[in-house]
Design a protein around this nucleic acid. Structure first.
Lengths: 203, 203
DNA sequence: AAATTAGTTGACCGGTCGGTCAAGTCAAGG
DNA sequence: CCTTGACTTGACCGACCGGTCAACTAATTT
């Protein structure tokens, strides 16, 4: 009675992994159960539907990533350094998926959002929620940069959303082209988008 | 013997329409046939598989859009005006899908690329091809702007790819949030990304 | 020790999936 | 006029889809 989530956690992790590698529609409940070594009956004991499992997996995935993001966006670091480190992180992460899968997988939130936003409202809403959390990291970094006079003033929230759009777009383009190039000069693009005063930006 | 494509064309149009509204995985061959009023036997007379139909539909969709794009990006227009008109076009297009479907559908190339790039190589390749064609419009506009000294010099191709990433990202974010806001200030973001000299940019 | 409960198991369901096929229609070309 | 070949039709296929269920196990509570 105390397998301490065990099966449930394995289902969450496996589901996100498989969906990331292919797509929601291409992964069946049986696939997930097989790989997670959990019987289908157990699956439906924990989750009322495939869509519900997916929403839960998105949240679990975020929780797993948050510590890394907290570290990257630590307010102890100079604000532009945070953005630079995030750029490096994105590039490195995709470099790894390219190495291990031969494919650039992009971001799971992107795959799910693009595929299901028009069909599964709960999944769309969860994706939107997580997008909002990402934007918050950018927002505070930008606000700090503005306070230091390194970045043009203006609505930090809007600027953060634009920056996030650029990331999402670059990731999607990298996935479609199956090349890392769109991710390589992200840092420079970001500086232009934020109108960074380059002379003062040498941190 | 000369229904002049008729059924085939209807299949191509219907397929793209349905996939755009939901996704590749969520649309069945039967769905497409039913809506196109074509029997499944005929479907497989024209196309060897669902994936092949999709690739053909992507190409047909591009061919249908090209005249509009040619007009928007006419070299007769000032280069920045072309980009501005494209921004307006994107916003207007999504405003319409929001009005008619209650959902922002984004760009079909995005939906397909994000969903299938890791699974169906032929579809990924076609998406990449079409991305390349879009980038060409931006590239020549940017090059013309550089020649006029309105835009910072540098690799026009790379700049065009960055601009296209921004568009893709904004569209994806709009789809996930189901809001038009990410598309509304695209024009300004674009100017920052290209380092437009604002004083001379008044066309 | 009895009752309760969370979790497990495997058989089962109707419907739908992508795809096949043989038989037919019908207009153009020899 | 008769063959040819592009196109149509509807029945059919096995596999798999998401989801259900009753019986079972074993630790926890009372």
């Amino acid at each position: 009675m105390r397998p301490e989530c065990e099966s449930k956690c394995r289902l969450l992790r496996t589901a996100m992994e498989l969906i990331w590698e292919s797509s929601y529609g291409a992964v069946s409940v049986d696939d997930i159960c097989r790989k997670a070594e959990v019987k289908k009956g157990s699956f439906y004991h924990f989750f009322p539907s495939k869509a519900d499992l997916t929403v839960a997996a998105m949240e679990a995935d975020w929780k797993a990533k948050q510590p890394d993001l907290d570290a990257i966006f630590s307010p102890q670091l100079p604000p532009l350094k945070r953005l630079e480190r995030y750029c490096q992180n994105v590039l490195e992460c995709q470099r790894q998926t390219l190495a291990t899968h031969g494919k650039i997988l992009g971001c799971p939130m992107m795959t799910l959002g693009a595929e299901l936003s028009t069909q599964e409202e709960t999944i769309r809403a969860k994706a939107a929620e997580i997008v909002g959390r990402y934007v918050r990291y950018f927002e505070s970094a930008i606000r700090d940069a503005q306070a230091e006079g390194i970045v043009a003033s203006g609505d930090a929230r809007e600027a953060a959303e634009r920056v996030f759009s650029l990331f999402q777009g670059a990731l999607l383009q990298a996935k479609i082209l199956n090349e890392l190039t769109p991710l390589e000069d992200l840092h420079k693009s970001l500086h232009r988008l934020l109108e960074v005063r380059e002379e003062t930006a040498v941190t």
